[in-house]
Design a protein around this nucleic acid. Structure first.
Lengths: 219, 219
DNA sequence: ATGTTCTATGAAACTTTGTTCACTGTCAAT
DNA sequence: ATTGACAGTGAACAAAGTTTCATAGAACAT
């Protein structure tokens, strides 16, 4: 992933914080005011950069409408397995409440508005928070139903070195997926827990982001 | 609180769903299109109603900018139900950041990299915020297996006013138990999700400690 | 009967906001 | 010296979006 400049990162952080606090995105002019730019175009340029670098997605023409990318694009190479924890960007993504029931509440009232879960959110406060840290991923699809992990569930991932048989979050060919890790003498591959799905043999690389430790299911 | 009309609720739900799916709010015209209104003013009126009724907060003039009120709200209190929060030795929900979505199916669902996480949590950071404090309970026994809650699982409980059908943590005869709450015109009782267990009719009063919002299962 | 509330249409006014264009300066590498 | 990325100014435009005005039928209570 291309590096973000300091200002770009600052702007992205501000945007996330704004969403976190207000439950809606800032406008370009909001950002302009925050950073004391004299022109909206300064912001515009930064936003384009953020989009080009893949960490932000804009919806052209739409006001206050963005998405942030949880992904870390991969560069890398020839080896078979590499272990990787969540990178910093991913962690920050977690600050964003948007969701089913957004962090929204009225001011001074950070709640989890009913519908959804009860997992503690990341808390942007400050900056401690080094690596070995768990994170959560929402599950989409049914490839793990035989392991009793269903669409809509959330899995808690912890960084670490996976063993044979662990369920892992893996980045395979640029896509994050949840599968069981099979290590055999000759080969390493990922196996879905659903007969209808084939095994996944990594083409070039297999990046393990972490090991699934528990499942959270909304009631 | 004043009741919402069907349409108002539908619109509010749509807005929440939109945020959940796209990570930004719909515009008035988005809502208009969704509900096939011929005029934006129809939507406008509904939004005003939602705001007057206290479930939605608009930011005048700002595009796609809203806040929603915490869900709680009403039901009856005419019954024997009394609410009580968790006591001091309750477990703290651990601090788990949330990263994004993960695919557990075919990579056919690629929908741009920007799908966001779906859980926002009660931030436990001590201080303010009296009521909404979540806590976790370890489940023992098999009385809820038909609801797919098993021995050893952990449930996340949130304070709130329970509705008919909610799974609640209730204090009955000095013992905390997890059951489904059944509210009928004539009576209120607790029902296990296991045919082998009888229904529980409270003697005098029924103390609800909170509503089960999600289940955590170790892998 | 009459007024009120709710819901809706249709059009227009108006504000906010994203986007574009032309231009300037800095810094590092070629 | 020149190129090229990066960061910014300033002005202007057009689309997106909110808000207001005038109007009207249906449901409902007074």
């Amino acid at each position: 992933m291309e590096e973000l400049t300091k200002k770009q990162k600052a702007i992205l952080d501000y945007m996330k914080a704004h969403v976190s606090e207000h439950s809606y995105w800032p406008s370009i002019r909001d950002i302009q005011a925050k950073f004391r730019f004299a022109s909206t175009n300064a912001v515009f340029g930064h936003l384009q950069a953020l989009e080009r670098k893949g960490v932000l997605q804009r919806i052209p023409g739409a006001a206050r409408a963005y998405k942030v990318a949880p992904e870390a694009t991969v560069d890398l190479s020839e080896t078979v397995i590499r272990y990787e924890g969540p990178d910093e960007n991913s962690l920050e993504v977690s600050n964003i409440p948007l969701m089913g029931s957004i962090a929204a509440g009225f001011p001074d009232y950070t709640e989890s508005s009913g519908v959804l879960a009860s997992i503690q959110a990341p808390i942007s406060e400050g900056s401690r928070r080094r690596p070995p840290q768990s994170f959560a991923l929402r599950v989409r699809g049914d490839s793990m139903i035989d392991a009793n992990i269903n669409d809509g569930d959330t899995v808690i991932i912890e960084p670490g070195v996976p063993k044979h048989g662990d369920i892992v979050a893996a980045l395979i060919d640029g896509e994050t997926t949840l599968k069981r890790l099979i290590k055999q003498s000759s080969k390493v591959y990922l196996k879905a827990e659903n007969k209808n799905y084939p095994e996944l043999y990594p083409a070039n690389e297999l990046v393990i982001q972490g090991i699934a430790k528990s499942v959270v299911r909304p009631i």
